[in-house]
Design a protein around this nucleic acid. Structure first.
Length: 584
RNA sequence: GGUGGCGUAGUUCAGUUGGUUAGAAUAUCGGCCUGUCACGCCGAGGGUCGCGAGUUCGAGUCUCGUCGUCACCGCCA
């Protein structure tokens, strides 16, 4: 028996008991004739004490100990003569009678403690040591708790958890696929799923009615703090439902998780049309923790002789509450910020609505105080506020103002991590025009159903067609998305047609799905949540890396085991592969 | 594919207009210490300043390239 208790559970009531603990040496405090050892495991830290005079044998053993040694310690629980109120086990200690080293440790490259001295690179390289730290382990415990809450909720709602294949067929739409060569089928490849999309729809055809899966998905695209090449989705599909039914079900799931995991009651989720999100927040994933909406000033500001505005397609503004005292330097910094290539604005016009009711702007030459008063009314500004205006190409400016809005939200401390504001963004466009290839792409995916009232537009103005597609957005993070699916093979054929597939291509790529639909497909709809993002949101973190046990770096590498890596000539031969790596 | 930040002791960092032998903290090792809990005190070892080239009498410092890493844009739902 290695232990009778964990390092986190002994209390003053256990005094006098003989116990055995196993764990890692956190720290040794050698006071000379008396030595204290902090013994750590997942559950906590317990202090061991050795008196040189009374425990000579054990004291001798202490000499070989070092940080992160795994030891087994036996002794008697006793009340401390000087207690530590800061730790749960702080009232007791173990007077050692026996001590054995189960496994020694070399000196670790960084210290295993909450405020570690290790940088990110090093912690990733020794991730198994990083995972010993409370902060990191807590994130993964949270993740496990959340996965449990998902299963509890969906199981009570009669969802069937079903696994779908990981080796599937590559499809042309969407993200780049990871591919896997097939040894048994020379020259042919599997793909790893970007999502189990087609399989879950086939499960609906199969009559499963309600399906879910917490499942790994793979996309071979460039990475970000919130994007990993392999990530986890809560993937779901339901039959005989409309959009409203799906949103209600998964609002229920989300609220259940907030309640179970964080003990937070969130407000009902508002529904916001995609067009409103774009116009008012400059984003399809608005952060509604704060207001500061975008305002279209185009009509108001034109025709006053300011050629920059007169020639612009769109002039928009946001109102930063209480910022009229911003200094020249602060305004300049904001101007430079929006001029960065990532934002790409030409400049920034400001109007200070001073506390005394007067105006000071960078365009005083062209606009009278009366004009500026009108602007202020249009953006709901009151004395003490700062109005920030940008002009240019409409879509670009909505985007830029949206970014500026978030930046001001950050500067003004309006994006509190402890506050959660979920909403549904609905009525996405069905199709997106691509200038390069001169064709439409499905904004969500090719199986998304158009809104019934917009179906006539498919023939006349496909770009205007809205989809029965929806995203769950929380605090400016896209947590999940889904759609009502097309379940009629004629409409599906039409979609493939609009997307530029020939009949043969559609048949080759999705024939089996179209074929399945000929055998009685129920109306169905589904959704998938980005589980990693949801966990990092709950944890109040910016990066999903911190909620994944073994994540990959920016370049998709696992710096711990150095994957990806070349394979042997024999392996290549067996897979019928010849490499043709281009020199840079 | 592109833009930017960072790279100095095991680790986290400092290092002035380019100027003598590159510092601090922490970790490690040794010594002292009976109530510590970030123990304390004394001492020691520890450096390819990421790598390569260039400018210069002289480069940790300036320039170019390269590698690594992070963030963002493109990409991705």
């Amino acid at each position: 028996m290695y232990r009778t208790h964990t390092c986190g559970e002994l209390r003053i009531e256990d005094s006098g008991n003989e116990v055995t603990l196993s764990g890692w040496v956190q720290r040794i405090r050698d006071l000379g004739a008396m030595t204290f050892i902090d013994l750590r495991d997942r559950y906590g830290i317990t202090q061991l004490v050795v008196d040189e005079n009374t425990d000579k044998q054990v004291a001798e053993k202490l000499k070989e100990l070092g940080r992160e040694y795994v030891i087994q310690a036996t002794g008697t629980v006793r009340e401390r003569s000087s207690k530590n109120k800061n730790m749960p086990t702080g009232e007791i200690e173990i007077a050692l009678k026996g001590l054995s080293v189960l496994s020694p440790s070399v000196v670790p490259p960084f210290t295993i403690q909450d405020d570690t001295d290790g940088g990110d690179d090093l912690r990733m390289k020794y991730r198994y040591l990083d995972l010993r730290r409370n902060m990191v382990r807590k994130n993964l415990e949270l993740r496990a708790k959340m996965a449990h809450a998902v299963r509890t909720y969906l199981n009570t709602k009669d969802f069937i958890e079903t696994e779908t294949p990981v080796l599937i067929k590559s499809t042309p739409e969407g993200a780049r696929d990871f591919v896997v060569p097939s040894r048994m089928n020379p020259g042919e490849f599997y793909a790893l799923p970007q999502s189990p999309q087609i399989f879950k729809q086939l499960l609906m055809v199969a009559g499963f009615d309600r399906y879910y899966q917490i499942v790994k998905c793979f996309r071979d695209e460039d990475l970000r703090a919130d994007r990993q090449p392999e990530f986890t989705q809560i993937d779901c599909e339901m039959s005989f439902v409309e959009q409203k039914d799906v949103l209600e079900m998964f609002e229920g799931l989300t609220r259940h998780m907030f309640k179970e995991v964080l003990n937070i009651e969130v407000d009902e989720f508002p529904w916001m049309p995609w067009s409103e999100a774009m116009e008012k927040y400059g984003s399809d994933k608005p952060d509604t923790r704060f207001d500061m909406k975008l305002n279209d000033l185009s009509e108001l500001v034109k025709g006053k002789g300011f050629s920059v505005f007169d020639s612009a397609e769109y002039i928009g503004a946001i109102c930063a509450k209480g910022c009229s005292e911003y200094s020249r330097k602060q305004i300049d910094e904001l101007t430079n910020w929006v001029k960065r290539p990532q934002i790409g604005a030409k400049g920034l016009v400001y109007v200070k609505y001073n506390s005394d009711g007067s105006f000071k702007s960078s365009v005083d030459k062209f606009y009278s105080p009366e004009d500026l008063k009108q602007w202020a009314e249009a953006v709901d500004a009151v004395p003490g506020d700062l109005i920030l205006v940008m002009s240019g190409d409409k879509n670009h400016m909505l985007d830029a103002l949206g970014e500026l809005r978030l930046e001001m939200g950050n500067q003004l401390g309006l994006r509190d991590k402890k506050v959660f504001k979920p909403l549904w963004v609905v009525d996405f466009p069905l199709l997106e025009w691509d200038e390069e290839s001169k064709r439409f792409f499905a904004m969500h995916h090719p199986f998304t159903a158009p809104k019934p009232e917009d179906i006539p537009l498919l023939d006349t103005d496909p770009g205007k067609v809205r989809a029965n597609a929806y995203d769950l957005v929380i605090n400016g993070v896209e947590i999940g998305g889904g759609s009502v699916r097309i379940f009629n093979s004629e409409l599906q054929s039409k979609m493939f047609d609009i997307l530029g597939f020939t009949k043969e291509q559609a048949e080759a790529q999705f024939g089996f799905l179209m074929n399945a639909f000929r055998f009685g497909a129920p109306p169905h709809a589904g959704i998938a949540f980005g589980f990693d993002r949801l966990v990092s949101l709950f944890a109040g973190l910016g990066s999903i890396r911190d909620v994944i046990a073994f994540p990959k770096n920016n370049a998709g590498r696992d710096v711990m085991n150095d994957a990806p890596a070349p394979i042997s000539e024999e392996q290549l031969e067996e897979l019928n592969l010849i490499l043709n790596v281009k020199e840079k």
